[in-house]
Design a protein around this nucleic acid. Structure first.
Length: 695
DNA sequence: GAGCACTGC
């Protein structure tokens, strides 16, 4: 026995040494490794540095370690690195912890919503950009950070843009604070918050590093007063770009033809085609499989793998599997494959040049999804997906002259979405002048005014645009759409917070009920069991409670957590409920419950009194009321738009006189979703400020 | 009788 165990441990030791050696070599071979000293020097010399690093440069994993070794974590200070996506924050943190030969959550950790793996010992902290914004509400000077690295800044998410504006301000405040010792200037931040944050600590200047993969670093540099820009080489194989000679009128058909052209004429390697949505993917998949049957028997086979975000995870995994010998994999993907996931084995990319994008009309306040041409940067990102493992080819299904006409980069999200949440956050950070705020790219004046107006109607702002006390402060603390935050506060007064907490949790996630085309009747029958004739909100409460009951039952049977989860998964399958969404809703529920407890809101249930709950829904969502018209259509009262009840609503057939709704989407026509029937008289009674009687 | 790019707190 002793000799055996000694052998095993020697073996283990050898494996360990080999792994360490492998990591050292991988790190040394990264393009960024050769410029470590120069980078650390530049960070020492410059308060703000822009780093342009192409894919594969190693900037995300290496730079924080260089800075740590360079002494930027002295006095317990932390290096924070923000990412636009949760999964990136987690995977990079795990990798860096391994490179540091340390347990995750010690020196290296990550923090994302619902999942915190940091400790007092954490010095290199990966997190989502939205989370850092939340931290700023509690510590406006972000005083524990010596360096903040904003990664993937070129993606220009709303969170990134707000964060950049905020960091610029924080940097000024901290620079002045350290110059003046303890007398603190008030640079936009509310005075008492700033003082509290700096009490007893010396606020050293904040180092900012903006990392971007796009070549267009000038906009970042300009924004930060001509900040120094450093370029780091990437490691990417060459990709041949091919254009069509003629314009293609039908990009779906052109994609189909190109897939078979590659399959029959090009060497081995998988294909990735970018489409705009689920419907296109499903129809192209059918077409490919029909045509694949006509291939000559001696030719190699084609295997299609769809991937888009609402596809259940097990089915998404298909796209990552390799095809069997003699078969070519064709991945049909939405934008999810552009940045969020990397699919191995891709040699050919097909880019029809279109994308489904969110659009916002600040006049009507309506968001919609429209299909538009991609930007140059996006086309570049897509073609890069062919060069991850070897030289590749990208087939752009448009002419080269069309490429030149594309916009350089995608319009930042902040210019095409509802800003209520952004404005509320900025107000809570003590930034009062929103119109004058130094955004990197300013949203339209109309959009800002629209959100200010909405926040006043919700009672978050006073008539002179100040954050109201306590409602505005409470609303800003809740990580929810402002209208949902307000609904919780209202429900506390109506004594039905328990029900409203369930409703806002369920409304905050992707759709809970799902209807597979092939089993539509079964799905409908399953929903009958939860359905309320009063409308969809109460149906959602019923679903949530039934799921909780299912979990409670298996808990009483002393089941282990895994068994409980299995029971719930099965229950979801039987009832045609999206398990991922339900789990997410339960996470949101428990997080928000913590917040409302701290705020001391009245946590009671309305019991069986659903009329009370509907009155509460009316008081909360009065801005979204619609009346039936003689022709059977509806009119949204706030905007006078003509709308229809979406067929997914339980009230689709009933057609009540008056409803409140939570979503207005424009597709083939204007649809309202998530409805509850109400008495029209309640509007004037419960929202007199808005529905003052006209006669 | 319709359908939802992708994220995030």
């Amino acid at each position: 026995m002793p000799s055996f165990s000694a052998g095993a441990s020697t073996q283990k030791q050898q494996n360990y040494q080999r792994r360490r050696q492998q990591i050292r070599e991988q790190r040394k071979s990264l393009p960024i490794a050769s410029v470590e000293k120069r980078l650390v020097d530049e960070v020492r010399k410059n308060d703000t540095l822009i780093i342009v690093g192409e894919t594969g440069s190693g900037k995300t994993t290496q730079l924080p370690q260089f800075l740590y070794d360079g002494g930027f974590c002295q006095d317990g200070k932390v290096i924070g690195i923000t990412q636009p996506r949760r999964v990136a924050a987690v995977t990079v943190a795990k990798r860096v912890a391994e490179e540091c030969n340390d347990q995750l959550g010690k020196k290296v950790g990550y923090s994302i919503r619902f999942d915190d793996s940091t400790s007092n010992a954490t010095r290199i902290k990966y997190m989502t950009d939205g989370l850092l914004l939340r931290e700023a509400l509690l510590d406006p000077l972000l005083s524990k950070y010596s360096v903040i690295v904003v990664d993937e800044a070129h993606e220009r998410t709303v969170h990134t843009d707000v964060l950049l504006g905020l960091l610029k301000k924080v940097q000024h405040s901290r620079a002045n604070a350290s110059k003046n010792g303890k007398t603190l200037p008030n640079v936009g931040h509310s005075q008492n918050l700033t003082q509290k944050a700096c009490q007893g600590t010396r606020c050293a200047p904040l180092k900012l590093i903006i990392m971007s993969a796009s070549l267009d670093a000038k906009c970042f540099s300009d924004y930060f007063g001509g900040a120094k820009t450093v370029h780091i080489q990437g490691r990417q194989y060459p990709v041949d770009i091919l254009y069509t000679y003629q314009p293609e009128s039908d990009y779906l058909d052109a994609t189909l033809v190109t897939i078979f052209q590659i399959h029959l004429e090009e060497g081995p390697g998988d294909i990735l085609a970018f489409l705009t949505g689920q419907e296109e993917i499903e129809s192209l998949e059918r077409l490919i499989n029909e045509r694949a049957r006509l291939l000559p028997p001696e030719s190699s086979k084609i295997w299609t793998a769809p991937i888009y975000s609402s596809l259940p995870s097990e089915q998404q995994m298909n796209a990552f599997k390799s095809a069997s010998a003699g078969t070519r994999k064709v991945v049909l993907a939405t934008n999810i494959a552009e940045t969020s996931v990397t699919i191995p084995g891709i040699k050919y990319v097909i880019d029809p040049g279109m994308v489904k994008a969110r659009a916002y009309n600040p006049v009507t306040g309506m968001e919609s999804l429209i299909i538009i041409p991609v930007s140059k940067a996006q086309a570049l990102q897509r073609s890069g997906r062919a060069g991850r493992e070897g030289p590749g080819k990208c087939f752009r299904l448009f002419q080269e002259s069309e490429f030149d006409k594309l916009v350089d980069s995608t319009v930042p999200e902040i210019k095409r979405c509802n800003l209520s949440n952004v404005v509320l956050q900025l107000k809570a950070l003590g930034i009062d002048d929103i119109i004058g705020f130094d955004f990197m790219e300013k949203p339209s004046r109309t959009a800002i005014l629209k959100s200010l107006e909405q926040l006043i109607l919700l009672g978050a702002l006073t008539d002179d645009y100040k954050l109201s006390d306590p409602v505005g402060h409470q609303m800003a603390r809740l990580p929810l759409d402002p209208m949902y935050s307000k609904a919780l506060i209202v429900s506390s007064e109506f004594k039905c917070l328990e029900e409203m907490l369930i409703v806002v949790s369920m409304l905050s996630v992707e759709s809970i009920l799902f209807f597979p085309r092939e089993k539509i009747e079964e799905a409908r029958a399953a929903r009958k069991g939860f359905e309320s004739s009063d409308g969809d909100h109460i149906t959602l409460v019923n679903v949530y409670r039934a799921a909780a009951e299912c979990l409670e039952k298996s808990k009483n049977a002393n089941a282990k957590e895994r068994t409980m989860d299995k029971a719930l998964t099965r229950w979801c399958r039987e009832n045609f409920i999206n398990h991922r969404s339900l789990k997410h809703a339960r996470d949101v529920h428990s997080q928000i419950q913590g917040h409302v407890q701290q705020m001391g809101l009245n946590q009671s249930s309305c019991g069986e009194d659903m009329a009370l709950f509907r009155r509460c829904l009316t008081a909360a969502f009065f801005l979204n009321a619609a009346m039936r018209q003689p022709d059977g259509s509806y009119r949204a009262l706030a905007t006078s738009q003509s709308v229809q009840i979406h067929p997914s609503s339980g009230l689709f057939r009933t057609k009540p006189d008056c409803v409140i709704f939570n979503e207005l989407v424009r597709t083939t026509q204007n649809y309202v979703k998530n409805l509850t029937r109400i008495d029209p008289l309640w509007l004037a009674e419960l929202a007199p400020q808005y529905y003052a009687t006209e006669d």
